[in-house]
Amino acid sequence: MFSFLVKRILSGSLIVVLVSVMIYALFWYGPKSPALELCRRDTNNRCTPAKLVEFEDRLGYSNPIYEEYGKWAKGLVADRTIIHGTSEYDCPAPCLGISYRDKSLVTDQFKERFPVTVSLAVGASALYLLIGVTVGVLAARRRGSVADKALVASTLVFSSIPYYLVALLSFLILTLSTSVFPEAKYVPFLDDPLAWFSGLLLVWLVMGLYGATAYTRYSRGSMVEALGEDYVRTARAKGLRMRTVVTKHALRSALVPVITIFGLDVAFLLSGTVFTEKIFSLEGIGKWGIDAVNIKDLPVVQATTLVLAVSVVVMNIIVDIVYSILDPRVRLA
């Protein structure tokens, strides 16, 4: 277990570093540099070559890439002072740089926005896992029946509607026209748990129900397979109740593949849900990142990408640990 963790954390860190280097390089050598973008914006599209050089100097693009990357990376562990032309900005560690747009500290922004995204991810994923697996198991038990076929068909229909349409319609109908649900807003859980819950309920339901369709199909398939296993026949031959056979013997094996997909899904949720945040006007990581990409705000893009990389790495480790708990044949090494 210990050697597993060491190994996985080391290899995970390597992945995170590589991703950050790649993003940096992409901006550095990309077709339109962020300096040009900023220059145009600040000069009302009258960016002269001289102006551009000035902007490049100011943002550090005239220095070698490794020097700038080094400064950025050092900022993760040590306080640094960022100089943009004549202005200086104090950036205490862990420093992720400052936004090109409004010169705000990326770290501060992150601290403000990440809880929103985490709240969305936790609520939505819990909901779709619970609904998806429950419905999937029930369908698998009645495989081939009319109810099962209708269910499979309806999940297919539902999940072939684009997600943003479902989210947008829900917002328009349930919040704007009928006010069944209040307008979505984020209140920190610690400030007011009830407001946190009611503020996000609609968003969770939309994300959860939509996601549950896929999980219904995964868990149904995996459950059908598990119910056909020899050890399930053995469990029945022992005289166990069908309920025990299903929950204790079949479900535990059926969950293993579902958990793998679930882990990766959660990782992607943690890195932001762009449509959801945009439609329901929630200030999370996804909206932040997409806005930053539009204006080539490198430090912000860098930060949001790192969130994704770290979540994927961490969730993978967690999935492997859960895996080894579920299946004793899997030895972490």
Binding site: E229, Y231, T234, L326, P328
Partner: peptide, 11 residues
């Protein structure tokens, strides 16, 4: 049953 490995629950 025949295949005891498959017939006993692996978990």
């Amino acid at each position: 049953f025949q295949d005891a490995l498959a017939s006993l629950h692996p978990f």
